[in-house]
Structure formats: structure tokens, C-alpha cells
């Protein structure tokens, strides 16, 4: 188990290191980092001071090391737009994003697991086909189109739901559904396939043979075993998909979260915020992946004992 933990940890650290390096290379490739990173409206003395402070007169290699030192000590610079530390700017956005994410994941689980199980049990009847069609359509409709269609129907046409912000519980409905679309498609498909794999195993036949009720066979022996794989997908795929989805959905609904912040800063070229935001979200995704790997290994001895 310790060897497994070490491997997960090393892989996460290497991935994070790569992300930080890629953001460094991307920001330095795109022209003069002084213009990119210091912003406008500075005096000549101020510029020189900052150049010396950020060590931009050194070689690229020394700059890289300085950048890594900054990352490790948590110094990511000031936002161009509101002249506050970017860590502070991003931190304010964490909770709204987290709330939306939790709602979306809860809705996804509540919808996809029952659908996936139904799809597996009734895979040869119309119910199974209907489930797969829904899952399939979920992949084909990008989240921004789902959001736009909902806004048209429920806000402009029926006048039921508000569009902008996160003031009341009603504000959560459309963003949550828009975020969940792709996630439901992914998780339903996966639950169905995992259930099919498990339901084909010998121990299911044994469970039926010893006279257990069908509900108990499917839910306890089937879903109980498929659940481990399903949870790993929630951790591994959903984290990445949700990060991408939140960017789009938060922008459309002016949700005061990290996704909207990233798009705004990308468009206004507020590079320190954008850079730190990308790193922060990447850290979150990598951390969730690592925790999922560990949880998966705890649940399944075959994984933690293999290859070590």
C-alpha cells in the first residue's frame, strides 16, 4: 500500500510540475513577459524596479527557477484589473464554484446511476434503448447550447427562471442542469457498462441460484460491485469534465465562480489571474484524481497489490 501511495504521489507531483512549467513556457513564448506581466501605466523607474524584482533581466533558466520559487512560496503576483494578490481574487471564487459543482455532481449521480442500472437490466427492451439514446444525446449537445436553449425556454419564453447570478435557489436550477448534461451522459454509459460486466459474472448466477430476490441480486451484488468502478469514474472523469463545463456554464449565467473568472481574465488578458487560476484548477483536478486512485486502491486489493 505504501508503494502504491508513493506512486500516486509521485505521479501527481510530476503532473503538477508539468502544468506549472507549461504555464511558464506559454507565458514566456508569447512575447515580452514585461509587457505581459506588469501591465500598463507604469513609470520608467517603476518598470525597472519590477524588472529587477521579477528578475526579468536574468537568463530564462534563472527566471524559471525564480518562478518555481514563487509557486512554492505561494506568490503569484497581482491582478492587473483590481491590483490585489491573485491568490485572494481566486480564493473568493472558490465557494460559488464549489456549490455549483456539488449540485451538478449530486444531480448527475441521482440521475445516471438509476438510469445506468435500468439500461443494463433492460438492455434488450425499449427501456435500455431509451436510456442509451438519452446518454448519447447528452454527449452530442454541448453545454453552452443546452444552457442557451434553457434560457430561451424558461427565462425569455415562459419567464420562470432567472438567468444572472446565484442569489436564490431558483438561480441554481439552469446552471446545475447545464453542467450535468455531459456528466450524466458519461456516467450513465459507464454505469450501464460496469453493471453489464458485473451481471455477467458467475457470482451473480450463484446469487440467483440460492434464491435471492432479483432486486437484491441487482442492487446489492450487482451495483455493490459495479459501484467501485463507478466511483472511480466520478473522480477521474467528472473532475476534468466539470472543470471544463464550469468555464462555459459560469460564463453564460454570470456565476461568480472560478470558471467565469478564467474566461474574463483570458479576454481582458489579466495574465496573473489566468495563470494562477489554471494552476489552481489543475491542482484541484490532480488532487481529486489522486484521492480517487487511493480510494479505489483501498476498495480493491487487486489494484494496490498489482505491479508493486
Amino acid at each position: 500500500m505504501i508503494a502504491y501511495l508513493a506512486r500516486v504521489l509521485v505521479r501527481s507531483v510530476v503532473t503538477l510540475f508539468a502544468i506549472v512549467s507549461v504555464t511558464f513556457i506559454a507565458t514566456r513564448l508569447s512575447g515580452n513577459p514585461i509587457d505581459t506581466f506588469l501591465g500598463e501605466g507604469l513609470t520608467t523607474e517603476g518598470r525597472e524596479e519590477l524588472i529587477r524584482y521579477f528578475q526579468l533581466d536574468r537568463t530564462l533558466w534563472e527566471q524559471y527557477l525564480a518562478f518555481l520559487r514563487g509557486v512554492v512560496s505561494g506568490e503569484f503576483g497581482l491582478s492587473f484589473v483590481d491590483r490585489r494578490p491573485v491568490t485572494q481574487v481566486v480564493a473568493e471564487r472558490l465557494w460559488p464554484s464549489g456549490q455549483l459543482l456539488l449540485c451538478a455532481v449530486a444531480l448527475t449521480i441521482a440521475v445516471s446511476i438509476p438510469l445506468g442500472v435500468l439500461g443494463a437490466i433492460f438492455r434488450k427492451s425499449w427501456i435500455g434503448s431509451a436510456v442509451m439514446t438519452v446518454a448519447f444525446a447528452g454527449y452530442a449537445v454541448p453545454s453552452f447550447i443546452l444552457a442557451i436553449l434553457m434560457i430561451l425556454t424558461f427565462s425569455y419564453w415562459l419567464n420562470w427562471l432567472p438567468v444572472v447570478g446565484n442569489a436564490t435557489p431558483l438561480h441554481y436550477i439552469m446552471p446545475t442542469i447545464a453542467m450535468s448534461g455531459v456528466l450524466v451522459a458519461a456516467l450513465t454509459r459507464f454505469t450501464r457498462n460496469a453493471m453489464l460486466d458485473v451481471l455477467g459474472q458467475d457470482f451473480i448466477r450463484t446469487a440467483r441460484a440460492k434464491g435471492l430476490s432479483e432486486a437484491r441480486v441487482v442492487l446489492r451484488h450487482g451495483l455493490g460491485n459495479a459501484g467501485v468502478t463507478v466511483i472511480s469514474v466520478i473522480g477521474l472523469q467528472i473532475a476534468g469534465l466539470a472543470a471544463a463545463g464550469s468555464v462555459v456554464v459560469e460564463t453564460i449565467f454570470s456565476w461568480p465562480g472560478i470558471g467565469q473568472l478564467l474566461v474574463t481574465s483570458a479576454i481582458t488578458r489579466d495574465y496573473p489571474v489566468l495563470q494562477f487560476g489554471v494552476i489552481a484548477v489543475a491542482v484541484a483536478v490532480v488532487a481529486i484524481n489522486a484521492l480517487t486512485d487511493i480510494a479505489y486502491a483501498l476498495a480493491d486489493p487487486r489494484i494496490r497489490l498489482a505491479r508493486s
Binding site: 506559454a26 471544463a244 468555464v247 489566468l274 489543475a282
Partner: peptide, 9 residues
Amino acid sequence: IPFTLVALL
């Protein structure tokens, strides 16, 4: 890595 974010950057 969530690629949409890298693409934004």
C-alpha cells in the same frame, strides 16, 4: 489536465 483551461491560456 483539463484541456479547456490550457486552451484558454
